[in-house]
């Protein structure tokens, strides 16, 4: 007899446009380049963080290669973590795909994921960030505490405040495939366009997308919003409509493109509502 409840719960949710407004600290995107690597190869990880409240957040980025007994990275001196304050909203780091995957993916077909986590926190809210920054020696209580958090950050997040923290999850694909996954490319049709919109007015943002397969575009802003939560890329092109809010001011825009099988790209720009 749960059907009315269920169906109303499932179907009564709406207001997709709200999802495009970023009004709090948030890990916006994680771009892994290349998105699919061979065991032992290195990928560059770019983490985009929105900070509309100017919280000057700290960020912790780490990987967890779990073969059934915690993260392999726990044995590393840094436990696979990168800690720091984003520069212009970006933290860049590198990670090597675990060589231990080599025999598993040697068939050239198997693809294994390595979980990549990114945690952004307003200063002082996340003990794990501080612990990672102190680089505790393996075997100490602090290291054990950090290891526990890094191995199960979902449980760890139960103790974090909801406001002022943002935990995100991505995956590094590890394989020995001959044609690995690649990231799409997102390019504005008019790179020199003036990104200014009047209060309450709208501005179309057109992009070309270079990617194999089906891709989806998502627009985000810290002022106003986009007219849809997601856009289907058709024939390598997509146009997003950005609405300025009722209050003028500087803002940031993100257009994030995800490939159907993985891989992503980010276009980011400053803009103005006047």
């Amino acid at each position: 007899m749960s059907a009315p409840l269920l169906l109303l719960a499932l179907l009564a949710c709406g207001g997709a446009n709200d999802e495009t407004l970023v009004d709090e600290l948030r890990v916006m995107a994680v771009v892994i380049e290349p998105p699919e690597v061979a065991p032992g190869a290195t990928a560059t990880i770019t983490t985009w963080i929105a900070d509309p409240d100017d919280d000057a957040p700290e960020a912790l980025v780490w990987t967890c290669t779990n073969l059934g007994d915690g993260c392999l990275e726990a044995a590393e001196p840094t436990q696979g973590t990168t800690v720091g304050e984003p520069a212009d909203g970006v933290i860049v780091t590198e990670r090597m795909a675990p060589p231990a995957f080599a025999p598993i993916v040697a068939d050239g077909e198997t693809v294994l994921p390595v979980l990549l986590w990114a945690l952004a926190c307003a200063p002082g809210l996340c003990p794990a960030v501080d612990l990672a920054a102190s680089a505790p020696a393996i075997g100490t209580d602090d290291a054990d505490t950090l290891t526990t958090f890094l191995g199960d950050p979902i449980t760890g997040a139960e103790a974090l405040p909801l406001v002022g923290t943002s935990l995100a999850l991505a995956q590094i694909q590890v394989s020995a495939r001959a044609t690995p996954l690649v990231n799409p490319l997102v390019t504005p049709v008019d790179p020199d366009a003036t990104l200014v919109v009047g209060v309450g007015a709208s501005l179309d943002l057109a992009f070309t997308i270079d990617a194999p397969g089906v891709t989806t575009a998502y627009g985000y802003t810290t002022n106003g919003g986009f007219d849809a939560a997601e856009y289907e890329v058709v024939d390598g092109a997509v146009t997003l409509t950005w609405f300025g809010s009722e209050e003028p001011g500087d803002t940031e825009l993100w257009v994030i493109v995800n490939g159907e099988d993985g891989g992503s790209a980010v276009w980011h720009a400053a803009a103005t509502v006047e």
Binding site: A29, A157, E158, L162, L167, A168, L169, A170, Q171
Partner: peptide, 19 residues
């Protein structure tokens, strides 16, 4: 209650962390 959330970069959806 939901005490926190995880933002999945692949689906670009939030998933709850329950209390």
């Amino acid at each position: 209650p939901v005490v926190n959330r995880v933002y999945d970069m692949g689906s670009r959806q939030f998933f709850p962390v329950y209390g």
